Amino acid sequence: MAHSHSHASPHLPEDKNARRLLLAFIITAGFMVVETIGGIISGSLALLADAGHMLTDSAALLFALLAVHFARRPPNARHTFGWLRLTTLAAFVNAIALVVITILIVWEAIQRFYHPQPIAGATMMIIAVTGLIANILSFWILHRGSEEKNLNVRAAALHVMGDLLGSVGAIAAAVVIMMTGWTPIDPILSVLVSCLVLRSAWSLLKESVNELLEGAPRSMDVPALKRELRRAIPEVRDVHHVHVWLVGEKPIMTLHVQVVPPHDHDALLDSIQHFLEHHYQIEHATIQMEYQPCNGPECHLNETTAGHGHHHHH
């Protein structure tokens, strides 16, 4: 931030998050390269699998960083939501890449069961331990940052947490190889680490696809929202045409509300908006108020109860 006006203070937590994320990203990406090279030199597949996991982490950190950055860029006339969807698209591509990496590693592991490769246990040990230290360092940096409840920073910290397990797996394999010289432990543990990669890939894929398909947030129960709104605000008779979707983790909603003709239109609108913000954390809602009952095929779009026909009127 070059300009230091009085309004620079709200950006501080954002900047602190961005700094933490950047630092964790540099550490993780750096050690991913180290582990890849180490895996090739020592001939260890578990190290390569862990490097694959580190790739998922550095990608997660990068998206978190981009999301913080794009969230700051103001929307413009063409991209009215700013650039937040880009991070979702990137997450989707990343998830697919991870699935491919996992398949390659598992395939290679199966090959190695039949034709065991020599592995330099000591080299593998040194690299695996440095990887573990790198992970602990990133996790510590991020975890200090999670008191501001930033979803991105928390998600990134969880990623790094999963990565600790990957490094521990590689260390375990190195210990077994140094003690007993039994090399098949390496492909066995590489498959286990790949499962970790696959798990984070799967959740990433689910979340990003849900967001790309304009799905409602997982936690949102539209029929309940409609009932609650009718109960909370007596003037509201009916709620229909409800659409909820996510843009860069921010829920956005449009709805039609059939109301008793109010004395004060704006006050009623205000209380509906206030309700959505407080009970459902929806800061961006577009509400259309109507005085006539809704009729037409779309009225019961979100109705889950049977017995509501299209021709059904009150």
Rank of each mutant, 00 (worst) to 15 (best):
L98F: 09
H263Y: 09
E249Q: 11
I119N: 07
L89N: 07
V193C: 13
A174E: 14
A285M: 08
L104Y: 14
V93E: 02
H79I: 06
M289Q: 13
V236K: 00
I233C: 05
G169N: 15
W182N: 01
E290A: 04
A8N: 05
L205W: 08
I26P: 15
W83Q: 08
I136P: 07
L151A: 13
S4C: 12
W140R: 14
P293C: 05
A128N: 02
A64M: 09
E35N: 00
P217Y: 00
R227Y: 03
M220Q: 02
L65Q: 01
P251W: 00
L48S: 06
W107D: 15
T56V: 04
V93N: 10
D238Q: 07
H3Q: 08
L151C: 11
H314I: 12
P217H: 00
V260R: 09
V99R: 01
P251V: 04
Q273C: 11
H256Y: 04
P262M: 11
V34T: 10
R78W: 01
L189C: 03
E108A: 13
I41N: 07
T87N: 01
L23F: 09
Y291P: 00
L192G: 12
A155R: 00
L12N: 10
C294M: 02
V197F: 09
T88D: 07
Y291V: 13
W140N: 02
R218M: 06
P223Y: 08
H312P: 10
H265G: 05
L164A: 07
E214L: 11
G166D: 02
T28A: 09
P184F: 10
L89H: 08
E290G: 01
V247I: 12
I27G: 10
K226E: 12
L212M: 09
V257Y: 10
K149I: 01
M179W: 13
H278A: 14
L301Q: 06
L301R: 09
H5Q: 13
H311C: 13
W182G: 05
I252L: 15
P262W: 15
I27P: 07
V106W: 04
T102M: 13
A216D: 00
R154Y: 05
G248K: 11
R73Y: 12
M161R: 13
I26V: 15
A267T: 14
L269F: 15
I141Q: 06
I41G: 12
L229A: 03
D264G: 04
D15L: 14
A91T: 01
L55H: 02
T80Y: 01
L229S: 08
W107F: 06
H314E: 11
S6Q: 11
H3I: 08
